[in-house]
Amino acid sequence: MSSSAVTTAFAKAAAENRAALVGYLPAGFPDKDTGIKAALAMARAGADVIEVGLPYSDPLMDGPVIADAVYRSLKGGTRVKDVLDTVAAISTAGTAALVMTYWNPVDHYGVAAFARDLASAGGSGLITPDLTPEESGDWPRVSDEHDLDRVYLVAPSSPHARIAAITRLCRGFVYAASLMGITGTRDSVSAGAAGLVARTREHTTLPVAVGLGVSTPEQAHEVAGFADGVIVGSAFVRRLAAAPTPQDGIAAVRELTEALAVGVRRG
């Protein structure tokens, strides 16, 4: 297996004694161009990996902030092509870009075609929150053929047998959902997150990144104490949504990224 851009990004962060910072933005929000600029600002300000959300009509793992953003993105006419353009812009700038997507748009596009087009856009792989190992079908084989990462989620409720099965299929990193719930900011990091990361490490040598409910530099610092990566989504989307102008939104994303990039340093 060759080393993907995501693997390289996690290794670089580890060498610098910090957790990798993974930032999420939905493509096409608030519009395609601003979304791309915000992602590039995020990359320049210290994000190691960027998750580009593929807007979907029924985002049942997402809380109101991201659900509203993807709804608006879809209303604005965002299509898979726009998602791939966003990925291409990020990867051309030298930052690893993964697509975060519910399964139906990929299924409908055709798994092989999607993998081919994602790879040719320079994308690193997929994060698939509603795809189980059991239903993965051709995706493991096709992603190997295109050298794409496969990021599945583990949850606090996952028993060892499932963590073993899931991590066996993962490539790039493992996404540990810090809590039982949907996306959105929380006041504190869930007490179960560290234990889940430890349980996951019993089954894999892949990096383990923690997401769901992480939004502040303090929380990022806490998570960096026990995980290889820190995933932040809703906090960025909220800033973009609240900004009076696109420029203000991009600036707010940059500022939060800079603060989080300090937060993920260990010691």
Binding site: L60, M61, W103, P129, D130, L131, T132, E134, E135, Y152, L153, V154, A155, P156, S157, S158, P159, R162, I166, A177, M180, G181
Partner: peptide
């Protein structure tokens, strides 16, 4: 045993729900 009616059905769910 895993809920398939031919090619249909199955189980596409977030991992958080799998244990339940």
């Amino acid at each position: 045993g895993t809920g398939h009616f031919g090619e249909f059905g199955g189980l596409f769910a977030p991992e958080s729900l799998m244990a339940a």
